[in-house]
């Protein structure tokens, strides 16, 4: 078996005195889509922050393609092919669409290529190239964010709550793009509250609560236990 693209070993992290990750073990095989599910406050976003270098762990290791990367800075990771689309507004609202795309070229792809990729996938962005990103609809903003995932040619893509605050129809559209990216061979770790949507595109799934991975398995197995985990065991 080849070396996994991402391997997280016994990861602990804390906000000040609040321990949020309590020993997380997670593996993303090369070329696979892994869905990371779980209720709010489970530590999913924190895990992505640590993997992407935005936050430092208190202990534990992270390996990217077998290389130990703990302590690397997010901009360095971004330049070597780790693309992170964080939750919420992951575009610059006071820059135009085109300016947002220009900044995406920091990941190492020429600006022209970024424009080409973005506009061919999302013609709507082309129409709004000179509009401020903050004035786009939520779905269009998320398309813009996804344009970075598409154009930066990542080795590993981290997607955090792609669907947050979006209408289900748009979420479906965005996940079509995720499937396209996955088909091109990119490994993806996707954090999602819309468990079912994420499970449809995932090869494997992991469930997180209380700062630990409590279950892993095929999407179908996980699907069955999700309602209990999120809406409460009393159901």
């Amino acid at each position: 078996m080849s070396v996994p693209i991402l391997e997280v070993v016994d990861l602990h992290a804390a906000y000040g005195r609040i321990e949020v990750l309590r020993g997380v073990d997670l593996t993303v095989p090369r070329g696979a889509v892994v869905a990371l599910l779980g209720p709010n406050g489970a530590g999913k976003s924190t895990l992505l922050k640590v993997i992407s270098g935005q936050m430092e762990q208190t202990s534990g290791d992270i390996h990217l393609s077998g290389v130990h990367v703990s302590g690397a800075k997010p901009d360095d990771l971004a330049r070597v092919g780790l693309t992170t689309v964080p939750e919420g507004r992951s575009v610059f609202p006071n820059l135009t669409v085109e300016e947002n795309l220009l900044l995406m070229s920091y990941a190492g792809v020429s600006a022209d290529k970024v424009y080409d990729t973005a506009y061919s996938y999302f013609p709507r962005l082309y129409e709004r190239a000179f509009q401020l990103a903050g004035t786009l609809s939520g779905g269009e903003q998320q398309m813009l964010a996804m344009a970075r995932a598409l154009s930066s040619d990542p080795a590993l893509l981290l997607l955090d709550e792609l669907s947050m605050g979006l209408a289900p129809l748009i979420v479906d559209e965005l996940y079509d793009t995720v499937v396209q990216i996955a088909d091109s061979g990119v490994s993806i770790l996707v954090v999602e509250q819309f468990a079912r949507t994420a499970l449809e595109v995932a090869d494997y799934a992991a469930v997180m609560t209380g700062g630990r991975i409590v279950a892993t398995g095929e999407p179908d197995e996980i699907n069955e236990i999700m309602a209990d985990v999120i809406l409460g065991g009393a159901a």
């Binding site: 997010p74 901009d75 971004a78 820059l95 920091y106 970075r148």
Partner: peptide
């Protein structure tokens, strides 16, 4: 690009870093 990055970092320096900017 660097000027655009300057305006971007006003709003969100963390995100700029995720873009690969410094």
């Amino acid at each position: 690009r660097i000027g655009t990055a300057m305006r971007a970092s006003v709003d969100n320096p963390e995100l700029l870093q995720l873009y690969g900017g410094r």
